[in-house]
């Protein structure tokens, strides 16, 4: 089984989000980038398939060389080969378009992306990719088994779970649950050394046109001070929630 894991490279969850150039550009000063957490769960499941079922695991990123350390990390924790489609990622449509062209030329049995990237939260790329390739797609995936030519994937729905069955190739939008937090791997020295020898290929972009573009950004207004209610006077809290906030 050949697995392609789509990797996104995102600001660390503790990052302060600021904008520059008249609020038109995300200010990366002092921002540390990490492997998107949802993708990390997917990659770890892919490596499980490698170890238990002999799968080959490739990772791919659409973007600039800024993400190379993240791709190297993926190789260090067990991926066999990395690809980077060399272009600046603009929106979900253009990224999915680039990936679809790549997969049409290099078929895979299973494509695992993250549920969403934690920066733009679009949750667009995996579904668009599946539709462009005309293959099944399961988002918010919290369980995945492969048997021959078939996969059973479980997705989280509002208030529960749904188990779906489909033929490979398939696209998965992965998240925590695909593996547990404790299954995630930290690259060790041996992995890091091996990663240096593993193939890393640059792929020229198709320069697919984006369908959207960000014009400006805005930060939420600063919050008003909290109203503290004494623990002995909870009637006051109820009164405030009822009369002032109108929420009960």
């Amino acid at each position: 089984m050949n697995i392609l894991v789509c990797i996104s490279h995102v600001p660390d969850t503790t990052s302060k989000i600021n904008f520059k150039d008249n609020q038109t550009v995300f200010d990366t000063t002092g921002v540390q980038y990490i492997l998107n957490p949802n993708d990390e769960f997917g990659l770890t499941r892919a490596i499980w398939f490698k170890e238990k079922q002999g799968a080959h695991v490739h990772v791919i990123h659409v973007g600039t060389s800024e993400a190379d350390p993240t791709l190297r990390k993926c190789l260090a924790i067990g991926a066999d080969k990395a690809f980077r489609i060399d272009t600046r990622a603009v929106d979900g449509t253009s990224v999915a378009g680039e990936l679809a062209t790549f997969v049409k030329n290099n078929p895979y049995d299973l494509i695992i992306a993250g549920r969403e990237s934690i920066d733009y939260n679009g949750a667009m790329v995996p579904g668009m990719l599946a539709a462009l390739l005309d293959i099944p797609f399961v988002p918010n995936c919290v369980g995945l088994e492969v048997n021959g030519n078939q996969a059973i994937a479980e997705r989280e729905i509002d208030g529960g779970r749904e188990k779906l069955k489909g033929n490979l190739p398939m696209v998965i939008g992965g998240q925590k649950g695909l593996v547990e937090e404790s299954d995630l791997r930290i690259p060790n020295m041996r992995g890091i050394m091996q990663a240096r020898q593993k193939p890393f290929e640059l792929v020229p972009a198709q320069q697919i046109t984006a369908a959207t573009n960000d014009i400006t950004f805005e930060k939420p207004l600063p919050k008003q001070d909290v109203k503290l209610v004494p623990a002995e006077d909870l009637d006051q809290l109820i009164e405030l929630l009822h009369k002032e906030a109108n929420v009960i």
Binding site: G92, T93, A96, N121, G122, A123, M124, V125, P126, G127, M128, L129, A130, A131, L132, F137, P139, N140, R155, E156, I157, D158, A211, T212
Partner: peptide, 23 residues
């Protein structure tokens, strides 16, 4: 923006060649 809507929208966008913005 339900789980189902976020499942549907990207597929629909790709099938239609439409632009899509969530949230």
């Amino acid at each position: 923006s339900s789980a189902d809507a976020k499942f549907l929208a990207p597929i629909l966008a790709a099938k239609l060649g439409a632009a899509y913005v969530p949230n």
